[in-house]
Amino acid sequence: MDRPMKSRCPECGYIANSIPPTHKCPDCGGFSHDWLIYDWDSFASIKRRHLSYNVAIICLAHAGLLTALILGSSPAVPWMLALLIVPAMVSGWRCRRQLRDQSKYQGHKAAIVFPWFSGFGGL
């Protein structure tokens, strides 16, 4: 059974069962379009999935780098693909840090669904 997704007011931290239709907080009276989704389980699930994507990218980049070194490749493409290690490692580090700090969780925006390599957010 699906449970309702809670929302959090970005101004005062009030937690509601859903975003009010007027986007006005019933507690502080502040208006905001930036209400946060307050659901640790979905956030942690998304971050674990992003972590697995990052591990796969790191492994593929290492394989490409080793192939380029072994074959003595001079074209720039394998070397440029090897540079994907850097953002994958940074994103993986951030995902692990966020998963460890559940007490600091304040809610998340819907844009975190997309990983960093999709170009729609993530980092």
Score class of each variant (00 low, 15 high):
F43T: 04
G122H: 05
F114H: 09
S7Q: 09
N54T: 01
R97W: 15
W79Q: 09
M1A: 07
A63I: 00
G92K: 04
P10F: 03
A16R: 13
P4G: 13
N54E: 03
K109Y: 14
C25V: 02
S52C: 02
F43K: 03
G29T: 04
M1T: 02
P10W: 03
R96K: 13
P26Q: 10
P75N: 11
K104I: 08
P20H: 01
I19M: 12
V55L: 14
P78N: 15
M1N: 14
P87R: 14
M1Q: 08
A56V: 00
Y14E: 03
T67Q: 09
A61E: 00
V90K: 12
Q106S: 12
C9M: 03
M89V: 04
I70M: 13
R94C: 06
L36A: 15
M80R: 14
A88L: 05
L99N: 14
V113A: 03
L83S: 00
L81W: 01
L51R: 15
I58R: 01
S74L: 10
S32L: 00
N54C: 05
A88M: 03
A68E: 13
P10G: 03
K109W: 06
G29S: 12
P20C: 00
E11W: 06
I46L: 08
W35T: 00
H50V: 01
W79P: 02
K47Y: 04
L99T: 06
E11I: 13
E11H: 11
